[in-house]
Design a protein around this nucleic acid. Structure first.
Lengths: 347, 347
DNA sequence: TTGTATGCGTTATCAA
DNA sequence: TTGATAACGCATACAA
C-alpha cells in the first residue's frame, strides 16, 4: 500500500495538517526542527501525494487533453511530441485521443476529458462545424471552465485561442515557386473542399496565379482527402489536363503522386514537377527529395503550451485578451521535386 | 458550473443515493417511475459524473499510462494509436509520455502516472536496467498495485507481462532472404549493441548464416543507433568491406543507407541489396520500395490492451499466470530493395 | 423503495 | 506553531 499523509503524520506524531503544510512549503512559520522531521519521515516512508485526492480539493489536475485527428500521422505525432514535452516541463501530463477526423469523436473526447477535469484542452478540429456545433463546443468549455485552444486548424470564432499557420502564404509560396520555374499549367490537389486549410491554401495558389497574370483554371484543381491514395488517384486526371507541375496541398498526397508516377513510368521532376505542404520528415528521403512548404511544428507546439500555461496561471484571459490568434509563417523548402519548365522541354 | 448528483437529487426531491443508484444501474429494485424521473432530470441538467470524485471512491481511474521512447517515431506513433483506440473501446483513456530512451524518464513517468492512479502501465523500456532498476520498477508496480506490461522490448523478469516480437526470427528471415538471393557478403547494421532487440535480431542474422554454411564475419557488422544518420554513416564502412547486401536492423537506418547511396551515386538494389526491419509506412513509397521485416503492430497493440483489460477485470493475475509473455511472429515483406547476386554481376 | 452516514486522501479554515 | 474539522463529489453499507 502507498503511504498517505496520515501515515507520515502518525510516524512523526503530528497532525496531517502540519505534514501537509511542510510538504507543500506553505508560508506558515513551521520551525526548522519539525520541518526536517516531517521531510525525513516522508522520505523514509517514500510518501508521494495521491494526485487524485489533491485534485479533488484543489480543482486542478495538472493535466491537459490533447485531441488530434490521427496521431500516427507524421505531422501530428511530431506535434504531439512537442506538446507533451513542453507540458512535462511545466509539470503537466497529457491525455490524448484520436478522432479520425470525425465531429462525434471530437465532442466525445472533449466531454471525456472534461469529465476527467483536465485543466485545458488543445485540439485540432478536423471536421466542419455548424453554428450550433461551435456554440456547443464553446459551452462545454465555458460551463466546465476549461480553456480550449485550437491548433493548426480553427473555427471561425474569436472566443477560442488559436495557434495557426498562414496557410494562404504557404499556398502562395509553393505556387509562386512553380511559376518562377516557368510553369504555366500548374495543377492543384486539394484537401476536402470545405475544410478551412484546404480553402486557404488554395487561395494562396489562386493569389500567386493572379500576381503572375496567369488565369485561374478550375479544371486544373482536383479534390483529394489528404491521403496517399487520393494523391495517386489524382494523377491520371492531372496528366489529362496537360499540367506540367502540381501543387499538392499536403505531402502525403504528393507521396501518392510519386507512387502513381512510378506506375506510369513518369519521372519527377523531369516529367512532372511537384511541391507539397507540411515538410514531414520523410520528404528528404524520397527520390527525388520532395520540395515542400515547411511548418514550424516545434515553434507552434512550444508557443501553444506556453500560451496555455500563461492562461492557466491567470496571466491571460483567453476570452477577452487581444491577439489570441497567433499565426506562424511557413517557409518554402526547396529540394529536388521541381524543375524549370524549359529544362523539361529539352529532355 | 457543472451539475452534481446533489443538484439532480434536489431537482427530483430524492436523495443522492437514489440518484446514484439509478445512474449506475445498480441492481436495487428502483421503480420505473422514479427511475425515469431521475434519468430525465439528469439529462435536463446535463449531468455528467465527476470522474475524479468517482475515482476517489472506486479506486479506479479507467486510465492507463503509456510510456514510449518517442511518439514521433513511426513505429511508436502507430502503436500509440492502436493502443489508444483499443483502450477507448474499453472506456479507458491514455496518459502518455516520451522518454527519449532514458532510464530517468522511464521512472519519472512511471512515478508520475502511478501518482495519478493510473490503473495500469504499458511501456517499452529502452535503456539497460540493472538488477536494482528492475527491482525498483517491480516494486513501484507492486506497492501501487498497478500491473505493468512491457511491449516491444522487455526486461528479463518473468514477473512482468510482455508482448513481444520474435526478433531473432525476424533477423533470420531477413538474412535468409538475402542468402537465398545468392549474397555471400552480407553486412549488418545493428542498433546499440547492448540493447536486447539489437542482440536478438543479430542472433537471427548469425543463425541464418550458420544454417547456410556461411561464416559469421565480425567485420561485416557495424553498430548503429537506429537513427537515419547512423545508417548513412555506416555505408562507407560497408562498402569498404565489399559487402553486396546489407541487413539493417531497422528501417530508419536503411533510409540512411538509401540517402548515402545517392550521394555515392550507387543504386539500390543494383549496387547494393538491402533489407530493413519494422515496415514503417513510408517503406513502400521509397525508391525502390524497401523490403523489410514487418511487425504486426495492430495485432500487438490490440493484444496488449486486450490482455491488460482481462488483467484489470481480474480474470488474470499478471504475476502468477503462465504464458504472460506473448510473442508475435514477424514476416518478410518483399518489395524492391534486394536483387539476386548474379543479376548484379551482369550489370 | 429510499435515506443517512461514512469514507476516499488531501487541502483549507479557523480555532487553540 | 499546531490541530480539529469541514469540504471536494461520489459510492456504498446499513438503516428505515
Amino acid at each position: 500500500m502507498r503511504t498517505t499523509v496520515k501515515d507520515v503524520a502518525k510516524a512523526v506524531g503530528l497532525s496531517t495538517t502540519t505534514v501537509s503544510l511542510v510538504l507543500n512549503n506553505k508560508p506558515n512559520r513551521i520551525p526548522e526542527a519539525t520541518r526536517k522531521l516531517v521531510l525525513k519521515a516522508a522520505k523514509e516512508l517514500n510518501y508521494r501525494p495521491n494526485h487524485i485526492a489533491v485534485s479533488m480539493v484543489t480543482k486542478k489536475t495538472h493535466t491537459i487533453g490533447l485531441i488530434l485527428p490521427d496521431i500516427s500521422n507524421l505531422y501530428f505525432s511530431e506535434l504531439a511530441k512537442v506538446i507533451e514535452e513542453q507540458c512535462h516541463k511545466y509539470g503537466y501530463n497529457v491525455l490524448y485521443g484520436n478522432t479520425n477526423g470525425t465531429l462525434e469523436h471530437e465532442f466525445e473526447y472533449l466531454n471525456l476529458f472534461v469529465d476527467r477535469s483536465v485543466d485545458a484542452v488543445i485540439m485540432t478540429v478536423s471536421s466542419n462545424y455548424s453554428e450550433t456545433d461551435v456554440k456547443r463546443l464553446y459551452e462545454i468549455g465555458e460551463t466546465n471552465n476549461v480553456p480550449i485552444m485550437m491548433v493548426d486548424r480553427t473555427l471561425d470564432d474569436p472566443r477560442f485561442m488559436s495557434v495557426l499557420l498562414d496557410q494562404k502564404l504557404g499556398g502562395f509560396l509553393a505556387t509562386s515557386y512553380l511559376i518562377n520555374l516557368g510553369h504555366k499549367k500548374i495543377a492543384c490537389i486539394t484537401g476536402p473542399k470545405n475544410l478551412r486549410i484546404s480553402i486557404e491554401r488554395l487561395e494562396g495558389y489562386k493569389s500567386a496565379l493572379g500576381d503572375a497574370g496567369l488565369p485561374f483554371d478550375r479544371s486544373l484543381v482536383i479534390e483529394g482527402d489528404f491521403s496517399v491514395d487520393s494523391g495517386s488517384r489524382a494523377l491520371p486526371y492531372i496528366l489529362g489536363q496537360n499540367a506540367t507541375a502540381v501543387f499538392s496541398l499536403n505531402d502525403m498526397m504528393a507521396i501518392g503522386v510519386y507512387r502513381e508516377c512510378r506506375r506510369y513510368h513518369l519521372s519527377i521532376p523531369q516529367d512532372l514537377s511537384i511541391v507539397g505542404f507540411d515538410d514531414i520528415f520523410i520528404d528528404e528521403f524520397l527520390e527525388p527529395p520532395l520540395s515542400t512548404i515547411a511548418q514550424p511544428v516545434q515553434e507552434i507546439g512550444k508557443y501553444a503550451v506556453k500560451k496555455m500555461m500563461s492562461v492557466l496561471e491567470g496571466k491571460k484571459n483567453p476570452c477577452t485578451d487581444a491577439g489570441d490568434t497567433k499565426i506562424f509563417k511557413p517557409a518554402l523548402k526547396v529540394r529536388g521535386s521541381a524543375l524549370k519548365f524549359t529544362e523539361k522541354k529539352q529532355i
